[in-house]
């Protein structure tokens, strides 16, 4: 598990970033897209992510090459592209989960609100406490109750937390995940007893309970039925009031319904590294893409 973030070359300077947002927090309220008219709430913790010249490796294999990207706070950014194009790898690099794979390493820059995620001496554990993640398969801890699942992250972050305070945070997180009414009478039952959609919302509550700044979602609805999918998509719209959301999806309708921005990843042929083809507001990507490959993909003629 080499952390090659320290070996960044100084030639890749932030000037290269074509950043539409310079002061994320200040501009967040101003630059509203059509899909997000709501004002950020008082709990808003969302932060911007700037990526420049990022390449990701599995051993000698380059999985993702030279990504430059700006992810805006309080927006939903969807990552789309065919299988194997590196979008999940890229997503996992944002909270430094990528390096958990033996031999994996990272080159390039990535900052969270100006702080270098891969800076020297940065503890990946600290990064993950600020950048939460929801996985493809719902993964509640099977030996824990619903309550314990939501409280699990809090017990890590705050060693000694009062019971009353914990109750409050758990309830808020479950309400925030639109799950409170369904589980409030069985908080001490195992989380694995819930339905798939409920489990995924439980995982979202678990991730948001620790108050991260960014929430990563890796195909969060792919294992869910349409009704549960819709519930999660509604939830995403709620969550972006407080968090920056990055979501990987294979579902074009989901990307167009739920996201503000869309980034399209593609690879020339098998064995080549995946690249970011283009990124724009979701409406633009789906109605008027600048690249032929994007147009082919979103219109279903590709992948």
């Amino acid at each position: 598990m080499k952390e090659d973030g320290e070996d960044l070359t100084e030639t890749e300077t932030p000037e290269r970033i074509e950043s539409p947002v310079d002061a994320p927090r200040a501009s967040a309220a101003g630059s509203t897209s059509p899909a997000t008219a709501e004002k950020p709430s008082a709990d808003n913790r969302a932060k911007a992510i700037e990526v420049s010249g990022l390449s990701l490796f599995y051993g000698d294999f380059k999985a993702v090459e030279d990504v430059d990207m700006s992810i805006r706070p309080n927006k939903v950014t969807a990552l789309i592209g065919s299988s194997g194009c590196g979008k999940t790898t890229f997503l996992r690099s944002i909270n430094r989960m990528h390096e958990l794979t033996p031999g994996a390493r990272v080159e390039g820059h990535m900052t969270l609100d100006g702080a270098d995620i891969y800076g020297p001496g940065v503890d990946p554990v600290e990064v993950r406490r600020q950048v939460g993640m929801v996985f493809q398969q719902p993964n509640p801890f099977p030996t824990m109750s619903i309550y314990e699942n939501v409280a699990a992250g809090l017990k890590l972050n705050t060693r000694r937390i009062k019971k009353a305070q914990l109750d409050e945070v758990v309830e808020r997180a479950l309400r925030g995940a639109n799950l409170w009414n369904e589980v409030k009478d069985r908080l001490n039952k195992p989380g694995s007893g819930l339905s798939g959609g409920q489990q995924q919302r439980l995982c979202i509550a678990r991730a948001t309970a620790v108050q991260p700044e960014v929430l990563l979602m890796d195909e969060p609805c792919s294992a869910l039925d349409p009704v549960a999918t819709l519930a999660v998509e509604d939830l995403i719209q709620e969550l972006k009031k407080n968090f920056t959301i990055v979501i990987v999806t294979h579902n074009m309708q989901q990307a167009s319904r739920a996201s503000d921005y869309t980034a399209f990843f593609n690879l020339e042929k098998s064995g080549d590294p995946g690249r970011l083809v283009e990124m724009d507001e979701t409406t633009a990507i789906f109605s008027n893409p600048t690249q032929k490959a994007t147009e082919d993909y979103v219109s279903g003629r590709f992948g």
Partner: peptide
Amino acid sequence: RQQEGALALGATRWEMIKMTVLP
């Protein structure tokens, strides 16, 4: 996936082991 879930919550390796592997 459970181990990754714990790590993504900001668990250290030992905390991850305590939360998922040992149970």
